[in-house]
Write a protein that binds this DNA or RNA. Structure first.
Lengths: 135, 135
DNA sequence: ATATTTGTAATAAATTTTATTACAGTATGA
DNA sequence: TCATACTGTAATAAAATTTATTACAAATAT
């Protein structure tokens, strides 16, 4: 299901921003990321579902940005890629007969939610254009 | 190498804080986390290396806290477990012949570093005792 | 028409994470 | 002093997750 979705997505979007007049192929993009083109297309499908990009099928087809890069924030990308900050949970259900085990995940979740809010606030202030213009 | 190191470690430490007078066995701790005892012992080895806990081998052995829970911050735990916040990098080297590919990881790293600073600042304000007293 | 590209599913390979097994070494206490 | 119950650690296996590959239908430019 792709773990580095955020990184891949921001890479795709940066490329699209650098070539605003072209429809870039998944092959081309995959060549820059060094990733399988099918995975690129999957992330693009997600971006399309959020109306961030548009693609054209067929020969000379590809994908281009459909929004203004100054108005797209890294926070939106963060949220679109279903990412969230966290430091893990006990994978198996912790022991419900132990007062600590019973509640640990709840408390960790609260903590992680606070972390996510801080991170989101930070990402809110960075637009795709800001990010892309660093290159 | 254990991915939820932070979560496991904080679970261990919370238990130790709840039973300040006992040496808790890895078996007991593992029963609360619902994790293999060997992995608990590995995390404890890390805590020992940082002088956060002390253990006693042999019969009736186990582990207990060696520091004051009011003085141990979640930030320290975060750092001790070598965790860091991030949203991934392209796993394979991105294409060095592409201006975006060549620099993306560097820029992502800068971004992630900023995120880590924010998160660290937040975790700095929470002690093990604060966390544990929620239970 | 042909070639190129998206879209998507199915499957395989690789990697990472977690669990298990095994056993030497250490302390306790009957 | 001997059986027992732990830690510590290595080696291996199993499970889960992530990434890659293959395949092909549908679309479209030239």
């Amino acid at each position: 299901m792709i773990s580095g979705k955020f990184a891949i997505t921001i890479h795709i979007l940066t490329l699209l921003h650098k070539f605003p007049n072209d429809y870039l192929s998944s092959e081309f993009i995959a060549g820059s990321i060094n990733l399988n083109p099918v995975l690129v297309r999957k992330e693009i499908a997600n971006l399309k579902a959020h109306h961030i990009v548009e693609s054209k099928e067929g020969k000379n087809g590809g994908t281009k940005l459909a929004v203004n890069a100054t108005e797209l924030t890294l926070r939106q990308i963060f949220e679109m890629t279903f990412e969230s900050i966290g430091l893990g949970f006990a994978k198996n259900q912790p022991n419900p007969d132990c007062p600590v085990g019973k509640n640990i995940n709840k408390h960790l979740e609260t903590l992680y939610n606070e972390m996510n809010q801080k991170v989101s606030a930070q990402l809110e202030n960075i637009s795709l254009e800001d990010f892309s213009n660093q290159f």
